[in-house]
Design a protein around this nucleic acid. Sequence first.
DNA 1: TATTGTTATACTCTATAACTATA
DNA 2: TATAGTTATAGAGTATAACAATA
Lengths: 152, 152
Amino acid sequence: MSHLQVFDRLLEISLLLQDDMARSFAGSGLTAARTHLMWELAALGPSPQQALAAALKVSPRNVTGLVDALVQGGFVTREPHPTDRRATLVTLTERGATTVRDMARDRERLARDLVADLDQARLEQLGQGLDAVAARLHGLLATGAPAGGAAP
Amino acid sequence: MSHLQVFDRLLEISLLLQDDMARSFAGSGLTAARTHLMWELAALGPSPQQALAAALKVSPRNVTGLVDALVQGGFVTREPHPTDRRATLVTLTERGATTVRDMARDRERLARDLVADLDQARLEQLGQGLDAVAARLHGLLATGAPAGGAAP
DNA sequence: TATTGTTATACTCTATAACTATA
DNA sequence: TATAGTTATAGAGTATAACAATA
């Protein structure tokens, strides 16, 4: 097993996970970006758009559009901020909260299914290998210079 | 090490690789989609746009736009097809070919760097674990139903 | 004066549908 | 009649810059 084969597998898995995610949005009015916002919102609790922009590492203008779409879909509402009248608190609706719970459940199930063929020892080995790769990647990116784009 | 931790690591690595890729395009006029097209083009040789659309699993209309941008950047040219006057052969320029070679070199180096901390046995264990995950993922997606979106 | 969210503008990726030129 | 590529149109994500209301 060569380093290139391992790398190819990582890219392959990455693409397959993205495909699966995109497929799961079909017809729901949700997208990766909107789902990500809801996910962060569930973690943060009701938040002004600035906080969401920071959490998502995205421009405030971008958040406006995402929230617009989620409001239209009935997943979130804009509530007045209790003390700052410039801000609005983006808040999950019942439907939005249910959606996030369902996603968390599906995610848990998928995570379990993916390693269903591995016994405890092999799971541990896989985890340690991934830890090492993630650590190297963080190190390489921390230098500022790109580590050298992974063309798929 | 739990299945959820392993899953989180996979998602984390996936995001970091995308970040790195995006960063490596800064100022070059290239993007992930355009780079992907060049990458396929290098593998296929001079190709009509239909072939590229099929290889990239993207609409022919989309290819028109990507090729337009790559022509403008001097990475590819549109040559007349020798026998079919409806078609054009998209062809890498000298600059385009050099770019792909550089990408392949960077990719090789990155693949090596990522596993630099692993000895041969651990590399093998990681590879086998990833193989198992990829196999499960293929199996789950083959059923048609989404395996349950991996919300980041 | 600084911050929150918005309007204005622009670029990219993506898709479908209709159209032109050729097979 | 079918195919290759284009124009037309549209939706989504993203960004910067200018502007309003409020701190």
